[in-house]
Design a protein around this nucleic acid. Sequence first.
DNA 1: CTACAAAAGATTGCTTACAATATAATTGTA
DNA 2: TACAATTATATTGTAAGCAATCTTTTGTAG
Lengths: 161, 161
Amino acid sequence: MVREAKEEEQKISVMQTNTDGYESLLLQNQLCFPLYAAAKEVVRLYKPFLDEIGLTYTQYIAMMVLWESRSMSVKELGERLYLDSGTLTPLLKKMETQGIVSRRRSAQDERSVLVSVTEKGDALRERALSVPAQMKNCIPLTSEEVNTLYHLLYRVLHAEG
Amino acid sequence: MVREAKEEEQKISVMQTNTDGYESLLLQNQLCFPLYAAAKEVVRLYKPFLDEIGLTYTQYIAMMVLWESRSMSVKELGERLYLDSGTLTPLLKKMETQGIVSRRRSAQDERSVLVSVTEKGDALRERALSVPAQMKNCIPLTSEEVNTLYHLLYRVLHAEG
DNA sequence: CTACAAAAGATTGCTTACAATATAATTGTA
DNA sequence: TACAATTATATTGTAAGCAATCTTTTGTAG
């Protein structure tokens, strides 16, 4: 009886785990999956460090762009970060509430909203300084490997739809 | 005068876009950013193909694992996909509503929920077959580059927190 | 100059994603 | 055998992320 059950199970198993002709659909054969999973993993690794300075990952990359340029439109910021207004508007409103950026309509073009770093946002830059080095310690790659990965990722990023 | 203006501009520029000491916080010096952005880009590239078979990206990778194994617990699925029950439970419920998977409590261990592919889910596998090749056409990398990228990403993925 | 197209943000709705917590079942242990 | 700890899933709350749509402003063709 047990034997019978096992055979039945085996039969189902063979029928059901056959991948002949479906190798291309195995998760292990996808490039997209490690990309998707590694990106999430890295954001997860950032979290403890970013928690300390009160930023989410998306806020962090937005601040990096703003720290560099001081002030830019939502449109420009979206182009830099590959994010649209549907994501940025609520994000920037939160950051404005936190007092680290200010938002105002451009006088030249009232359609445009200029985002600027406030003094409080500037102060945060000092505290963020240690984050990149701490992150590097979490990623077990040599400088050369990081460089290779970086350039391959940018090639994927510039792929045409 | 032009010279003066230029100097003033330069001075402002230095004041406002000065990155001395902050180079590590430039977006262009982060590995995380192209990783994060490329992952989103690839999911975006998948969308038209997945729309045709009625799956989201997350549903697609879940189905890939299930097509291979036919049936597994939510826990196992989560380990494969790096997702927790907070993400999987609603996702699998939707897929159950769509009729492509079934969910039932394990008889051996009532804590565990077994997810299985239905006939309808199987039929979908045929239609999904063309997706991987279509995606490869969207990614402008050679096989060797894909291979390099793949392995580097898995090394990042296995980084310890 | 007007009407219409285009651009920039904002809003809405839907789908992840994850932390924190809750619940129920199982296991380990005194 | 109680009962504490662990495990598996579900739930709740919050933050992205994106498509679709709306509003306001700007640009432009006629």
